[in-house]
Amino acid sequence: MIQKQRKISMGFSDEKLLEGQHIIYLYNDDRERKKTMASFLQQGLLENEKLLYLVDDISPEEMQKELSLLGVDVQRVNNCFDITAGHYACCPDHYFTAEFMLKTVGEFYEQAIQNGFTGARGAGEMSWALVEGRATVEELLNYEAQLNHILQRHPLTTVCQYDARRFDGALIMDLLSVHPMMIVRGQLVKNPSYVKPEIFLQEYRERQQRSSRLDH
């Protein structure tokens, strides 16, 4: 089901953008990040959107309290706000697959519309992916690249939060390549490094092959 895309406010930025933006948020300041995300989610509530927050650093209950303290009216409407552990939502079988996750994103958005919400927005802390054996870099990059296509059909406005203190610099550069928008110091900017998903994935695979040859 394709609807006419709305222009929405991100809450932390003045300009209005089309819903379904795929945003990367590189951060190394938790206070700033939570404040930015609180504005993003609170704006979603104001725009009658279904919210999804995948937490990782702290428990869902603790995040709910923190967001509440930061002004998010988490109790405003029943069932409008899902706060879940990231690894639980993304890796139900203890292993991350892009396919499952992409399907979940689409379903979440469609269900929100069916439940009368005007749209949906989600924010996810991605550090769960650093746990050994949970996800491969390739699968993660594949998901992030493919998500751009999914969001065109199911415009779930998405903020992927990557902790710059914990993720490898090279991977960060690759992740930047698959997010059209990015948040820099609380400001939303267009990502100049963004590469179309197919091109990125092709280049990535070629690079991997070169690297593999060199290793041998």
């Binding site: 610099g169 960060i172 820099v184 990502n191 100049p192």
Partner: peptide, 25 residues
């Protein structure tokens, strides 16, 4: 892209991570 690299440098605290970020970029 160069400016993006420059503006992201400050986020990467680990030296090796920074080198890999810049090198990849």
């Amino acid at each position: 892209k160069v400016i993006l690299i420059q503006s992201t440098i400050h986020l990467l605290q680990d030296k090796k991570s920074l080198i890999r970020f810049v090198c990849r970029g």
